[in-house]
């Protein structure tokens, strides 16, 4: 079966192993525009590798991967660069460049991704007065995560939560069609963690971006599935009132030892009797 162009991301029987450890074991799923996926799993269950395989940072040993309807399993690195320009990633360790300032970090995709760089120069050379420069977009993106004042600081001068927010700013600056968040709340206190999830919701709901969030906190997934950003009030509020956007489009995946052991909606997750799956529900306590 050839996947239609409507899929954002599609895994078919993807397996990945390093020497003797299995990172992914015959993983298959399909993601459509506007959908949100929340991936739960214990440490070492293959969550991070799932994201890395999705954008071709790691090549699977077997199986096929489609990104935006195009198969990327055997694409050359040079061609992958152009595909990745349409994806934003927040790495677990932040992945901010120590040697660059916050502004340079956030500007990095715009100045280094070939497609994005060309788009910007083209727009400005067309004499389009409304064209936004790299600097405008960096400011806008940092304003989005409420860190505009840190422009000239270095990542090392920021707190863990602030670094995570700069990472989000860098991920969203290119206005990608797909956003991947690798454990965005790991190691943060609950209040900061909720701020981060609120930012993720805000980005998702303002631009209707397809989002995959890897986490071990059930509460993060619960927020993603049941809350949305209201642009009028600027607040996060419970989704509902006949137009239950969140519930319909949010799916949960649970991974164990590289295998996908659950895929479904939140009510299905809550009803699941598997001991491993239930562990995540209990841990969150939401």
């Amino acid at each position: 079966m050839t996947p239609g162009d409507s899929t954002i991301l599609r895994f078919e029987d993807v397996s990945l192993h390093f020497d003797t450890t299995v990172a992914l074991d015959r993983v298959s799923f399909e993601m459509h525009p506007g959908q949100t996926y929340v991936v739960f799993g214990a440490a070492g269950s293959g969550k991070t590798m799932l994201l890395k395989v999705a954008v071709g940072l790691v090549r699977p040993n077997s199986g096929r991967v489609w990104l935006f309807g195009e198969e990327i399993t055997h694409l050359r690195e040079q061609d992958l660069f152009d595909m990745r320009a349409r994806v934003g990633i927040l790495f677990q360790e932040g992945g901010l460049f120590d040697s660059l300032t916050v502004a340079e970090n956030v500007a990095y995709p715009l100045t280094n991704q070939r497609v994005l760089r060309h788009a910007i120069t083209e727009r400005s050379s067309n004499g389009n007065g409304a064209a936004r420069t790299v600097e405008d977009r960096v400011r806008e993106s940092l304003r989005f995560v409420e860190l505009e004042e840190t422009l000239d600081k270095f990542p090392a001068e920021l707190s863990g939560g602030m670094r995570r927010r700069v990472g989000i700013a860098r991920a969203v600056v290119s206005e990608p069609a797909l956003l991947l968040y690798d454990s965005p709340t790991a190691g943060l206190d609950p209040i900061t963690a909720n701020t981060i999830v609120a930012l993720i919701l805000k980005e998702r709901d303002l631009r209707n971006t397809a989002t995959i969030m890897v986490t071990h906190r059930y509460q993060d997934g619960h927020l993603m599935a049941n809350f949305r950003y209201n642009p009028n009030s600027g607040q996060i509020e419970r989704a509902g009132g006949g137009r239950d956007v969140g519930q319909v489009s949010t799916k949960f995946l649970v991974m164990n030892g590289g295998r996908l052991v659950f895929e479904g909606t939140e009510p299905e997750l809550q009803a699941n009797q598997d001991e491993y799956v239930r562990k995540f529900l209990r841990a969150g306590g939401a």
Binding site: F91, Q92, E93, D98, R114
Partner: peptide, 18 residues
């Protein structure tokens, strides 16, 4: 090595740089 373990090398590839 520090860049590798803090995922800066992956970030570089993800952001269009070899």
């Amino acid at each position: 090595g520090s860049m590798k373990v803090t995922e800066q090398i992956d970030a570089m590839r993800a952001l269009g740089t070899d």
